[in-house]
Design a protein around this nucleic acid. Sequence first.
DNA 1: CTGCCCGACGTTAGCGCTAACTTATTGTAT
DNA 2: ATACAATAAGTTAGCGCTAACGTCGGGCAG
Lengths: 333, 333
Amino acid sequence: MKKRITLADVASAAGVSLMTVSRAINNKPGVGEDMRLAIVKLAEELGYQPNQIARSLATNFTTTVGLVVPDNTNPFFAQIARGVEDTAYKQNYNIFLVNTGENPAREQAALDSLWQKGVDGLILCSSRLPGESLEIEFSRFPAVVLINRELKDPVAHAITINVDDRRGAHRAIKYFREQGRQHIAYIDGPATSLSAKRRLEGYQSALEEAGIGFEPDLVECCAPDTEGGRIATASLIARAPKIDAIYCFNDLVAVGAIQMVRESGKKVPEDIAIIGVDDIPLATIIRPQITTLHVNLRHIGRLAMRTLLDVIEGGSSATAIQIEPVLVVRESA
Amino acid sequence: MKKRITLADVASAAGVSLMTVSRAINNKPGVGEDMRLAIVKLAEELGYQPNQIARSLATNFTTTVGLVVPDNTNPFFAQIARGVEDTAYKQNYNIFLVNTGENPAREQAALDSLWQKGVDGLILCSSRLPGESLEIEFSRFPAVVLINRELKDPVAHAITINVDDRRGAHRAIKYFREQGRQHIAYIDGPATSLSAKRRLEGYQSALEEAGIGFEPDLVECCAPDTEGGRIATASLIARAPKIDAIYCFNDLVAVGAIQMVRESGKKVPEDIAIIGVDDIPLATIIRPQITTLHVNLRHIGRLAMRTLLDVIEGGSSATAIQIEPVLVVRESA
DNA sequence: CTGCCCGACGTTAGCGCTAACTTATTGTAT
DNA sequence: ATACAATAAGTTAGCGCTAACGTCGGGCAG
């Protein structure tokens, strides 16, 4: 392991003081232009790289942010993480990635750890922490962006970004109606899920708006995967044979629904139309290709990081951002 | 933003010196047991959290490692990242996640940045850096684990972890042979890919070992996705109608192959058997379910992190680790 | 020619912590 | 009782950097 070259090394090699080198390298005023060029050149030749740790200790800034997700393996968060990292890179920030595994204790431990490392800001996805704990966190981190979680009252230097699930559900149902569908079912996700709740609301309000009553019989909860979709679809068909459209919690559920509809002898989309949510790669691989609600998650990640930087720099803009899903029409509806 | 509580605060509150508190909190000898307990309790009450930056500056350790991947969105790297993060968390380490986007310049910039932040070690996945640059990196980072990349000569405090693609390909071909398949084709990935090269070698050697000659006509390169698999399969079937088995670069290619085989009026696996690589979730969703080579990537991630910690602590164990893929037999072969 | 301001550079102190040394206190063998 | 460990503390210095202030000289108005 090579020895580190410090500012002092560069300074003595250049025959000037520490501060002159510091100023030259950080492009701060107080150095002559020719001197600055000479120093920068020398520093490069010597292979000087600033010690960010020392710099952080002196300035109280780390050019580092924390990104906390339940599971970076989930494509939803992977896409967001990629977006965050992309714009972080452009701004010379680094990100600490932490998984919580949906475990509040681990989440809390992660936040403590990030705090100890002095991150300039925090992007918190689908936090499972109770509201009071969140407020404590807001008060100690300089800036926080909350993704997929709502806040009762707006908080200074905390900004929320949410997908507008209600509106998305609304759009899907409206599309079904435009196609003349009469009996629209909804396969919801786990009852604990925030998005599940919001989508159900959108489903209900769209039905009421369309003048069709909401029938609890046409709603079924399930595990958010293919198998869950199969089971839920089977019981829906058994219970309400007239249904001619199903709005699904996500694309995996939609795949299960498609499989089960076919196994029951009906056709997609002729007899029963299906709309999913997420637009995962699989949506275009299977036949029929899935009509689905798409959100640009990578874009959300970029937006989150940009917003966070705004807050860090004091230019706190909005307080709650809503992202609208786009209906991508393919073959299943 | 609340004021930070420092060691000095705790010390004066306890009426002892800085060092006594430091020793108490870090479980170092030189403090009486009762005193230690009292200090730890007091520190907790005051909400003291050590400033890792100051600690790092003093000790030259950061309990932080860098994880560099081409794209954290790719499930391959996402799984590895999850494994790395899991064991990092258990050891109270944090990870800096960086994407390179397959861009060597960005990769180099990322490494510089990580170095400036003083990471204790580095896990580098599928590096695109030339060998010479890698050697320079080895000399400045205290510890490096290289995933999916081979090294000509062993290097101190650098350890490689690779999937044994040759052996995997070998296993797949052997399985085909055991089933009596005679004309085994191979759809390879991009020529630039290291794994593609290794799998091709395994394919060739297995054929030779089986006493069947290697026919260049039975190998086709393609983009590593479903569409690529479709195209490659179409031209394989046109060129060599006798083929009765296809080994595919990955599962997505296998999906394309299955689709195209069927469209050409043949059956999977009766007429043509198909084996993929990776065992992605899709492999069990589509019908027929894909027979594929599985590696536990999360396990690789955990292994990488554990190994890295070993190197950091000076207990450098192995130098090159090979992971053997397991053939998961399902329906497509 | 004097005074004053401003830009270019140097010096000092301190961020919060720990390594390494020094000092006080106790116990134990002689 | 004396000497000498061992243990429990305190003190000092410094990690590499930057904020803040200090110094010096030259340009320019009066």
